[in-house]
C-alpha cells in the first residue's frame, strides 16, 4: 500500500462483472484501498492481478464465502487490521436462480436467500459497526430490474432482490443518524456472466424493450456505485436507483 491512502472500499463479488468494474473504478482513487472479496480464490487473484498489472497498488483481496458467518467474521477482522475508515461497501456477490415455480427446489431457495438476503444483513451489520467509528459510510446493495417488474421463471431471484429494497429503506432509517447511507442499485440487462446464458433471440427482445436500445456495460453500473460512495451523493439515502437503460421487461 502507498502512503497516500486514507480510506477503504470493500467489494464482494469482486472477481468479475459489476464487482470487478467497481474495483477498477475505485482503484483510480490513489487515496483508496480497494478490498476485493470473492469465493473463488483463483478467479479473485486473477482479477486482482489485472488491477496490479494496470499499476494500481492499493488493492487487497480476501477470499470468503459470504454465506458462511465464520468467513464473514474473518473478513471483518482483516478489514479492521488495515486501520483505515471504510467509506464504501458494495455487495455484488450472488448468482441468479432461474426456474419455473413448479420446478423450484427447496434447497436452492435457501441458497438464494443466503446469498442475497442473509449475507446482505450480516455484512451490513459488520460493516456498519466499522463505519460507525467515523460516523460516515455508504452501503450499496445490488438489486435487479426484476425486483419490481418481475420476470417469468425468476420468482425466487426477484423475491430475494425485492427483499433488499425493504432492507435498504430500513437500514437507511436506522443508520442515518450515524451518517451511514444505504442505497441499492437495480441494474437491467448488463453484459456480465449472469446473463451470458440468455439466447440471442431473447437478448434482442430485451434490447428492443430498452429505451436506450442496447444492453448495459458493468462500468455503467460501477459509475453509479462509485457515485454513491462519493461525497457528491452525501444527501442520498434509502433509494433504489435503476440503471437499466429504460428497460420494460413486459411480463
Amino acid at each position: 500500500m502507498t502512503n497516500s491512502v486514507n480510506h477503504i472500499v470493500v467489494i464482494t463479488g469482486a472477481s468479475s462483472g459489476i464487482g470487478l468494474a467497481v474495483a477498477k473504478k475505485a482503484a483510480l482513487n490513489e487515496q483508496c484501498v480497494v478490498i476485493m472479496v470473492a469465493k473463488n480464490e483463483e478467479k479473485l487473484v486473477a482479477a486482482k492481478s489485472q488491477l496490479v498489472a494496470a499499476g494500481y497498488l492499493n488493492v487487497e483481496h480476501f477470499t470468503a464465502d459470504i454465506t458462511i458467518n465464520e468467513q464473514v467474521t474473518q473478513l471483518f477482522k482483516f478489514i479492521q487490521k488495515i486501520k483505515l475508515p471504510v467509506y464504501g461497501f458494495v455487495h455484488c456477490a450472488g448468482t441468479m436462480y432461474e426456474s419455473p415455480l413448479l420446478m423450484t427446489r427447496d434447497h436452492l431457495v435457501d441458497e438464494q436467500y443466503h446469498q442475497h438476503v442473509k449475507s446482505a444483513i450480516m455484512l451490513a451489520q459488520g460493516i456498519s459497526k466499522i463505519m460507525a467509528r467515523n460516523k460516515s459510510g455508504s452501503i450499496v446493495f445490488i438489486s435487479s430490474v426484476v425486483a419490481q417488474q418481475g420476470s417469468r421463471g425468476q420468482s425466487v431471484y426477484a423475491a430475494m432482490k425485492s427483499a433488499l429494497h425493504g432492507l435498504t429503506a430500513s437500514l437507511a432509517a436506522e443508520l442515518g443518524t450515524m451518517n451511514i447511507r444505504v442505497n441499492a442499485v437495480a441494474p437491467g440487462v448488463i453484459d456480465t456472466a449472469l446473463v451470458a446464458h440468455i439466447p440471442d433471440e431473447k437478448k434482442q427482445q430485451l434490447i428492443k424493450n430498452t429505451a436506450l436500445g442496447r444492453i448495459g456495460q458493468p462500468e455503467e453500473v460501477a459509475d453509479v456505485i462509485n457515485f454513491l460512495f462519493a461525497e457528491e451523493s452525501r444527501f442520498i439515502t434509502g433509494q433504489v436507483i435503476h440503471v437499466d437503460g429504460g428497460l420494460k421487461l413486459g411480463l
Binding site: T73, F76, K77, K129, I130, R133, T177, M178
Partner: peptide
C-alpha cells in the same frame, strides 16, 4: 439502541477487538 451501537464501535476501535453479536 443508537448509543449502544456507538459504544460498541468505540470499544472495538479502542481495544482493537471484534465483539460477537
Amino acid at each position: 439502541s443508537m448509543s449502544h451501537m456507538m459504544l460498541i464501535a468505540d470499544i472495538e476501535s479502542n481495544f482493537d477487538i471484534m465483539i460477537d453479536t
